[in-house]
Design a protein around this nucleic acid. Structure first.
Lengths: 223, 223
DNA sequence: ATGAATTTTGTCCGGACGGTCAGAAGCTCG
DNA sequence: CGAGCTTCTGACCGTCCGGACAAAATTCAT
């Protein structure tokens, strides 16, 4: 319910003028969403301030509020905007492919996501930490069904003897956990390792280890 | 530096009277820290309010501030208090033991931690998300050295042929990621699975999968 | 019991925050 | 060029929050 009202208010900005979106509108909304992502991903909904976002977007607070009337609207806007992009690699996993190449590719993509778009990952964690009140609907419907869909694919691979008998859903959780860890725990990793995943050598070591351990853990031993 | 001043202010509460701690002092500080953990772990430092914590601790705001003069002090107090407990299982991993039983035991302990003390896990994530400004010192010294110590143990196991050749530090990251995932992403897991790790069947499936995949991924194939 | 020390509360302050509003400035298209 | 719409700004408001403070209530040692 809170999700639906959020969507409505989000569209208000777009539907304000009954005509098309202006060039300036498109530009500024983009800049605002980028700035909002940056701030929300660090401080969460409550911790972030509109002033902070406005400054980062290079405009005055009232002007930002001209585009997104409520802080809450801006939050759900950046949240839903990110969700699609974030789930995209999951859909690319093809059923008819070889499990090893498909899963390896998926894991690598998720690791690249963590390296290239860490803020998006952190935004979700902040939301999920709060019990995902703004995503509850999407999680229980869209995410649940997409996970079940892919779990079915994995189950088929298992039935065909191409994969060891592991719980498919928990396997997905393991992949998500190990890959997103490099975005969410960046500060911790940096403290221990001295550098983050943006460093090519670190990224290589991370992906080799993650892919190696996970794949050995689920692939049947070769003859 | 911010860490040192934090420690000082934390001790101020204890050192207020130059004598020992009263019974009431001990009780109330305990209650406050528990309440603070609950609130901080949900909303983070900025998002949490002192009133909220005070109410949850069953006392007035000024009274809470009598024990912890600044919100910030309370935050660092609950943070450092939790850190020791959180890292404890890591130290129990014995070098002279069998890698399989040692690592399996460690992973299981971490999973139990995620099930029994999810708030502690979420508190850290909130801090790390902000770049760990209040933990920077501890992370770069204590955590770094304890990780390197255990990495050396793992390296020895690898040298002895008891473990496959994987990057020890990234292996530790994988263990942390997969286990803490069940605390940090509780809401997501609950949405997909319909229940969380407090459910015995779910916990069993989770630990079987995590332990199974990880151990197969790092143990040499048995003859 | 009583005086000192500790604990608790009501009240208040200054600043920050989300959001409003009226009007100024800029853009667009005839 | 100029009318009408869009975009932007400064000033302002009510509320919430962290924290201060003095005084009241309670505890404790003797």
């Amino acid at each position: 319910m809170s999700y639906e009202t959020a969507i409505e208010s989000q569209d208000l900005a777009r539907a304000r003028g009954s005509k098309k979106r202006t060039r300036i509108q498109a530009e500024n909304e983009e800049r605002i969403l980028d700035a909002a992502l940056e701030v929300f991903s660090r401080y969460g909904l409550r911790g972030a301030t509109v002033d902070q976002i406005a400054e980062k977007a290079g405009m005055s607070k009232p002007n930002l509020l001209y585009y997104f009337r409520r802080k809450h609207d801006l939050y759900t806007a950046v949240l839903t905007r990110t969700l699609d992009m974030w789930l995209a690699p999951f859909g690319e996993m093809a059923e008819d492919g070889d499990p090893e190449t498909e899963l390896t590719g998926y894991i690598r993509q998720k690791l690249e996501q963590s390296r290239d778009f860490p803020q998006e990952s952190r935004l979700f964690i902040g939301e999920v930490l709060l019990g995902a009140p703004h995503l509850d609907g999407v999680l229980k419907t869209d995410l649940k069904s997409i996970v079940e869909e892919k779990a079915e694919v994995i189950r088929r691979w298992i039935r065909d003897g191409k994969l060891l008998d592991v719980d498919p859903v928990h396997l997905v959780f393991m992949i998500w956990a190990t890959t997103q860890h490099y975005a969410d725990f960046d500060a911790q990793i940096r403290s221990v390792l001295g550098r983050g995943v943006e460093d090519p050598a670190t990224f290589r070591a991370a992906s080799d280890t993650v892919i190696g351990v996970l794949m050995r853990g689920i692939l049947p031993v070769r003859s």
